[in-house]
Nucleic acid binder design. Structure first.
Lengths: 335, 335
DNA sequence: TTGAAAGCGCTAACAA
DNA sequence: TTGTTAGCGCTTTCAA
């Protein structure tokens, strides 16, 4: 086994006593060739340790077996989990993943997309929800977890998301079932479609229970961070009256809320129940352990990987709009 | 701005009224061309949104501008941070990153390396500490954070790591300075070189203070996880006597330790001080906020990116063995 | 300062 | 069944 890379298809052809075309046919299993030829060629390839130059091949076929993954923030465990599972599934099908962290910047995202296109990636998975997919030409594209617009049959977009409406609904119902009546909600200024859906679930549950949604019980953060949530609660909570349950749009927010509540000497859950969203890796070790809505990251990524591969092969994805169920994880931050 | 990807250098040349060679020269900043030509060409490129085909370019130059990054676990915030910064630095220099998660499996790592080689990556950064770099042929390779063997001038390895010995040393000294005398240490069964170095710092500090290292105060975990740490402390702590300080090899371990201590109704830090390692994103929100050793992930990644690029360009890396300083972050888990 | 043209290694028509 | 050959889009001599 010599150092790969220096030998070309021409050498294989010469040694095997055939033409380069034949070697190519054997490698790619297309066209016809006699069994003897195939055996001879394969033998030479193996002996000599030949590996086709994926660059030349890619130039010729414009197929790379590389998938671009656009992700807003790989430090967020939810996205990291998605990326990890995606990479795992794709790799198992002989696809490489190029992960592009956008840090929520549209500019950076655009640059990344240009690079991916220049690399001729076979497909792009957007976890970012940006509408930059319009710039991707004819490359198969799919949205995972986030999406750029209200779902519309005619848009032609392929979307895989988790059941955010139900998530918000069951979380709120949990709060209601355990005795909360004056329920607050903490969300971020940039309400994306996921948060909107969670909010609509919240509203449905409140409506069904005949509970009012107080405008002064909707806390809006400038950004999603523990710090922002803590500050907001510290500032606004003392002025609010009678809040006995808080629905947080993410576990990160929930941690900030709980931290503030501790500082205000408000007991969780006896005074106030807190519920999060995502089931972050550490959520079970918060004080108290956090009741939260778990998204099925494995299933989401698995489905996305399958669908993008379908699309690359010119097939239809299993579905244009897939909604993955969520699970309520009950711990001790609710009564 | 049209859809990129379908236009080639030839189109730019036609529109700008020059030859493809000139366009290529402008893009690559080599050869000579008049300032007016350059301006005109750049304008067209920008207007039309042209991006060179990296495949064709790669075929021609046999340079891919892709770096492989081997990482054990992207879900670990420490590694995720490293990867994020690496990707950021590399992207700024027009390099793409292919992130390969090994899940600590040597088999999977080997497969990933084969793929990277077939893709003709320009270089590989190992965050995994595996010795699989021997299989990479003549591709520039560099170790970041972890390494496969005791440092040896003659090995020819390029290693960038953080100052683990000093980290263990200052952490232990913090414990000692705040009154701990019977100090325990929690590490994992698979003591890698980082943990060994932290341990040697611990030992030096203990020696200097004339403190004994009790064999019954060394807790060894089967794996690094909150759960394993919690279980171990719950089981072993009640049998140990007089422990008043605990040095944890990672923040994850520290969280498990603190959780167990809470359950055992042992107060932190008044009964026992706890100190962690890594300064995980959530460490400041633990109850109480965790004193820990922060590694300079940004500097580590920055250095690694610079060095691998050096090596790819046939230069020597800045140094064969770089040690990045650490910082003690004092919070309230120590007295 | 610029252009023409020869490939980089491979695949896929088209011929034989 | 096999071989010949024309490019894929780009960089880079070599000439002008």
């Amino acid at each position: 086994m010599k150092t790969t890379g220096t030998l070309k298809i021409k050498h294989i052809a010469e040694i095997a006593g055939v033409s380069v075309a034949t070697v190519s046919r054997v490698i790619n299993q297309n066209g016809r060739f006699s069994p003897e030829t195939e055996t001879r060629v394969r033998k030479v390839i193996k002996e000599i340790g030949y590996v086709p130059d994926s660059m030349a091949r890619g130039l010729r076929t414009s197929k790379t077996n590389v998938i671009g993954i656009i992700v807003p923030d790989i430090l967020n465990p939810h996205f990291a989990g998605l990326v990890l599972e995606l990479e795992k599934n794709l790799f198992a099908q002989s696809y490489s993943s190029v992960i592009c962290n956008t840090n929520e910047s549209a500019d950076l995202e655009k640059k990344h997309i240009d690079t991916l296109i220049a690399q001729h990636v076979s497909g792009i998975i957007f976890i970012s929800g940006s509408d930059a997919c319009t710039a991707t030409g004819s490359i198969p594209v799919l949205y995972l977890d986030r999406r750029p617009m209200e779902y519309d049959e005619g848009s032609g977009l392929v979307i895989i998301e988790s059941d955010n409406h139900t998530g918000g609904y069951v979380a709120t119902n949990k709060l209601i079932a355990t005795g909360s009546k004056n329920i607050a909600i903490v969300c971020s200024k940039t309400m994306d479609y996921n948060q909107k859906a969670r909010y609509s679930g919240f509203r449905q549950a409140m409506d069904e229970a005949g509970l009012a949604i107080g405008g002064d019980r909707i806390f809006v953060l400038d950004e999603v961070s523990v710090h922002a949530a803590r500050t907001k609660i510290l500032d606004a909570f003392p002025r609010s009256i009678g809040i006995d349950g808080i629905l947080c749009m993410t576990d990160t927010i929930a941690l900030g809320v709980m931290t503030a509540l501790h500082e205000l000497r408000i007991a969780i859950p006896s005074d106030v129940s807190v519920i999060g969203y995502d089931d972050a890796p550490l959520a079970e070790f918060f004080q108290p352990p956090l009741t939260t809505v778990r998204q099925d990251v494995v299933q989401m990524a698995h489905t996305a990987a399958r669908f993008i591969l379908n699309m690359i092969n010119g097939e239809l994805p299993g579905s244009r709009h897939t909604i993955i169920p969520v699970t309520l994880i009950t711990r001790r931050s609710t009564r």
